[in-house]
Design a protein around this nucleic acid. Structure first.
Lengths: 172, 172
DNA sequence: GTCCGCATGTAAGAAGTTACATGATTCT
DNA sequence: AGAATCATGTAACTTCTTACATGCGGAC
């Protein structure tokens, strides 16, 4: 077993809850439901499904129009999903461009720093607005509802940080 | 210019504030000060410095014991750093294993979900404790102080989410 | 019939991880 | 002398991004 393979896990989760689907379906669902926890486009998803099939985590039935393949999760795939959830210690490999900008603020003079923090603030505000518009998707058996709460909490924390920091910068 | 190159920027920031240093110095400083905003080990840093030197963002003086090279930021490097800070729109490419676990919670039964959230809670608690112990490093001219606040806010948000979620799971 | 969205992919390269390799200095 | 830590690197691999390529089906 490899160390990360989070994309696999996310795909297995969608297949387990939504039932069988094509790569295209998965890519769409990914975009609309899982994008804020793990981003991945179709160019990453298609080859990954092929590998997962080779590893016996999913099965593909080649079928219908323009070579559309429908993937179904196997018992082995379901096992892998549950094992990962129960046993994998999530890594805190943080890699955030806004946090990096925050880190580097002291190299700027005050006005520049204000500009940068205002932009970060707008980003958090936009993200928060987006999440507030997002309803936990129907037909997914609750999948994503807890992550949505987490996202909201993090976005609000970021927004609060930006406001505090702007106040500090303007006062100092 | 490439789209991301955040590692370069982080290194330029350290060189600008701390003054010249070797790859080893930078790797150490990275680990102790910037790790919570952008993780990178020496195997990534050494080759990157070579490329940055080739691009004229830093200069290396080969010197002293065991081939230790000291890198100094150039005006061009400083330019690049400031331009990035002022102009780069940070991307929100989120990729968090804990958020993914949160997303997938509904595939588990209640007791399993509680176990997973408790583990995530421990992680946020450990992170928070670590950040609370961390003092904004002296000798770095304030570098990292704002990112530290941001990290604290995010860790507290995560901890709060875990507590709320545990309450919900146990009540439901 | 032609345009648009559906649907599937490949290829090249950048970024990041893990494991390995090597030699110099300092401490005991 | 031996151990620990300083200090630098390479190689192989996985993961992710960007750009390109292709063909079907329905709408007009």
């Amino acid at each position: 077993m490899l160390s990360s393979m989070s994309l696999r896990i996310a795909l297995l989760g969608l297949l387990e809850v939504k039932g069988p689907g094509s790569g295209y379906d998965l890519a769409k669902t990914f975009e609309s439901t899982a994008h804020h926890v793990w981003a991945a486009g179709h160019t990453q998803i298609y080859p990954e499904l092929v590998k997962m099939a080779a590893d016996g985590l999913v099965v593909a039935e080649a079928e219908g129009a323009r070579g559309r393949k429908t993937y179904t999760i196997t018992p082995k795939g379901s096992d892998e999903l549950h094992t990962w959830l129960l046993e994998h210690e999530p890594s805190f490999a943080l890699r955030s461009e806004s946090a990096l900008q925050a880190f580097l603020l002291p190299v700027l003079d005050r006005d520049e720093a204000v500009t940068v923090v205002e932009r970060i603030r707008r980003h958090y505000a936009a993200w928060l607005a987006h999440l507030e518009r997002t309803q936990p998707p129907a037909g997914l058996n609750g999948l994503g509802r807890y992550a949505l709460d987490l996202g909201l909490a993090q976005a609000r924390a970021g927004l609060g940080w930006a406001d505090d920091t702007l106040a500090k910068l303007r006062a100092g």
